[in-house]
Design a protein around this nucleic acid. Structure first.
Lengths: 335, 335
DNA sequence: CTGAAAGCGCTAACAC
DNA sequence: GTGTTAGCGCTTTCAG
């Protein structure tokens, strides 16, 4: 398809079509006015010759490069990849490509990457991370190009996108209640995370202010430990555990099985993240909350693009709905 | 730092330094000859003004865009992200940025992405995937820019990079033998995978041609099943299990524990991939083979860059060494 | 040793 | 309707 022999320039198209360069340009860009017949002929010729306009030349002139940068400090890719997929999906058709820059938490490296992006005249930047309550280690204010913050903290007056943790948690807990569960406990990560607070808040909103919450870290090991504590206590044991992430949920499921407590017959378990590798391998497979990161990415892509085009976008925080994915750890749903 | 007020162009630098544009350009690029004093002064001024050359203009002239494209069909990112990190690391300092394109297995989408990359005049493309014995759904031959294949199949005469599965497997099995294990079994994925064949070959090379190999799929469930089969058989049970990936290894460890077989006291287990989320959460944490994907990425980056510069690179397959990461599932190592 | 001038490939006023 | 002309910001001969 794409041939190596020196790219054909608009000049040869014009020649072949018997028009001037300017006319060819207009024909190809649907600008100016000319006989429809001429326009078609030029296009025809261009197609035959396999003409592809030089993006550099075009960018130099138009100040738009049809590229954007995606900055992230999530080296693992747990959050970034789905997001990236969404961004990319929203932008390919518009002809814009995405530079991915992993900046870890190194301000120097971040600076280098941002400078490189700026040099390349990206039309916009999407800043993303692995925590919605932490900022990237770079100052992105006062850039001359638009910035959208997705799944990371940003200035109040910026366009920001996060998943609606509270809504997701609410949905999960309501699902448990709908299944008839009444003694629901929340086992989650460190209380210092905004997402933990959001989810905890929503949890208590549904089960009442006395709802029991165990804070720990994000690991499977903590899931085990939490179960040990709960079952060791003399008080009545829970009939449902809503976990702060899938790893904790997996630990909880394993620990319960090892204790001879049946999931979901005796206890229902819900996770958070829908991290396939964890959720699907858990026994039984986890019912869990998906943050729709791909959708979030699509939205972020759409928004930078709009901003880059100079369209007005209302600044502020946008929360995107999460979705409960039903597998087998709660009972209910498809059997 | 980076200010929005209209970018400063080389013209203002020249003005401020009291030289012509041409001289300024030469001073900045270390070309041409001029009084060292002049050169320094220009640089000084450029720095003060925060001058950053317009990459578009430069690219238009030099035919080099200082960008490359990374194509992958690994939507999950298990292999792509570490690779990407390496590529990026090798290239940031050279001022080249990376377009990440996830093409899934859709030829149409792939075409769109490649065309976009070509339009943007990328200096080269790195094709990567999730299997070393499958090609991407795009024809990348006959492009006018260099292509490097990393962790994916490519034409014989292309520059190709893969991890050395055989060496990695050999290392793992030798480690087990060094620990005194003699009845080693290999539990792995589908025999149709080239990497499975490589690893199996190396396994038999070390333990002898009669070494027992169980083929299945890449899941934890298969690890469970394999243990069931092995312990159900009347023959003597293995004292070590070398697994085709970490998920299988995790399944194996869980199954053994459930049977009351102690890991590593009675049976040693080795995984493959060093997928942190799986390897570290396994009880006990997995000793496993790391494919050094980041290193592979660095190498791929270095190579496209060399090719883009017109340097000669010997085509053919390059195998990069894997490395055994010792945790606790084998005994031995740090205690 | 330095500067004037040409031009990379394309688009956009303005003439014809 | 179509073509001529002037650049976008930079590098690079080639005179001076």
């Amino acid at each position: 398809m794409a041939l190596s022999p020196a790219r054909v320039r608009i000049y040869e198209v014009a020649q072949a079509a018997g028009v001037s360069i300017a006319t060819a340009s207009k024909a190809l860009n649907d600008t100016g006015r000319m006989a429809e017949e001429t326009r078609q002929r030029v296009r025809q010729v261009a197609a035959e010759l396999g003409f592809r306009p030089n993006a550099m030349a075009r960018a130099l002139l138009s100040k738009r490069s049809f590229t954007i940068g995606l900055l992230t400090n999530d080296t693992y890719g747990r959050f970034t990849l789905p997001l990236m997929a969404g961004v990319s999906e929203a932008l390919v058709d518009e002809g814009v490509s995405v530079f991915l820059c992993t900046i870890e938490d190194d301000p120097q490296l971040a600076r280098v990457h941002v400078d490189a992006l700026l040099d390349k005249q990206v039309d916009g930047i999407i800043a993303s991370g692995k925590r919605i309550d932490r900022r990237l280690q770079v100052d992105l204010t006062n850039l001359s190009i638009p910035v959208v913050y997705a799944f990371t903290e940003g200035p109040d007056d910026a366009v920001r996108l996060v998943s609606d943790d509270a809504q997701g948690a609410r949905e999960a807990v309501q699902w448990l209640r709908g299944l008839g569960r009444r003694r629901i406990v929340h086992v989650t990560g460190p209380g210092s995370f905004a997402s933990v607070q959001e989810r905890t808040g929503a949890f208590r909103e549904v089960v009442g202010p006395d709802g029991q919450v165990l804070f720990g870290n994000w690991s499977e090991a903590w899931g085990h430990e939490a179960v040990r504590r709960l079952w060791q206590a003399s008080a009545s044991q829970p009939d449902a555990i809503f976990c702060g992430n899938d790893q904790i949920a997996r630990g909880v499921c394993d620990a319960l099985r090892e204790r001879g407590v049946s999931v979901p017959a005796e206890v229902s378990v819900v996770g958070f993240d829908n991290w396939e590798i964890v959720a699907a391998a858990t026994r039984p497979p986890l019912t869990t909350v998906d943050m729709n990161l791909k959708q979030l990415g699509r939205e972020a892509g759409r928004l930078v693009l709009a901003l880059a085009r100079g369209e007005a976008v209302t600044p502020g925080l946008r929360k995107l709905a999460c979705q409960l994915v039903v597998r087998q750890s709660c009972g209910g749903g498809v059997t």
